[in-house]
Amino acid sequence: MNEQLLEAADDELVVGWRDSEWTGIAPLLEEDVAFSSIAQNEIGHARALYELAARDLGTTADELAFDRAPGEYRCSTLVALRLVPDWARTIARRYLYEQADERRLAALKASDDPEVAGLAAKIDREEAYHRMHAQMWFDRLQDEPRFLEALEKLRPLVDDRGEQPPGLAELWEEMTSVRRSVAGATW
């Protein structure tokens, strides 16, 4: 179960990180605000999932999120890609990710562990807004060749989980730079 939780947590953490790269530079100010909420929700989901896993592993959510080596993360190739400033690819990833996440959440909701099932249900209810947002953009961009091309290119990466997804090492460096600057400190 912890494997599944970590996989979900790592995906949410990294996709949330990538989505937060748009804060301040999204195509429309209103969209910037909306997109930032999605990023925060994802980080929030990651935190809750890490906390559940941390309970059994005797550690903390922050330690799981930051203090593992890059090779230990279980996120997909799809989420680790740095897509800024390409909006077509960003929306394509959102759309594909939400579809895959919905399937994963359905499985977690059916878990024997009531805490896992409960958390998955909560996350799923928040994700409903993400799906609405992704669909809204899909409907708007579905006649754009660059968007269709992006969907095609990214689709195979949804379930691709390798040792070191491209982009993750660089992300990890930046993500942990302050934390590593004073080892063991409280921030």
Binding site: E30, V33, A34, S37, Y129, M132, H133, M136
Partner: peptide, 17 residues
């Protein structure tokens, strides 16, 4: 007030703002 292409977008944006 919010500027949006249509009501669907406006709903998403108003919800956030």
């Amino acid at each position: 007030s919010i500027g949006a292409p249509n009501l669907e977008f406006a709903e998403v944006y108003a919800r956030e703002q």
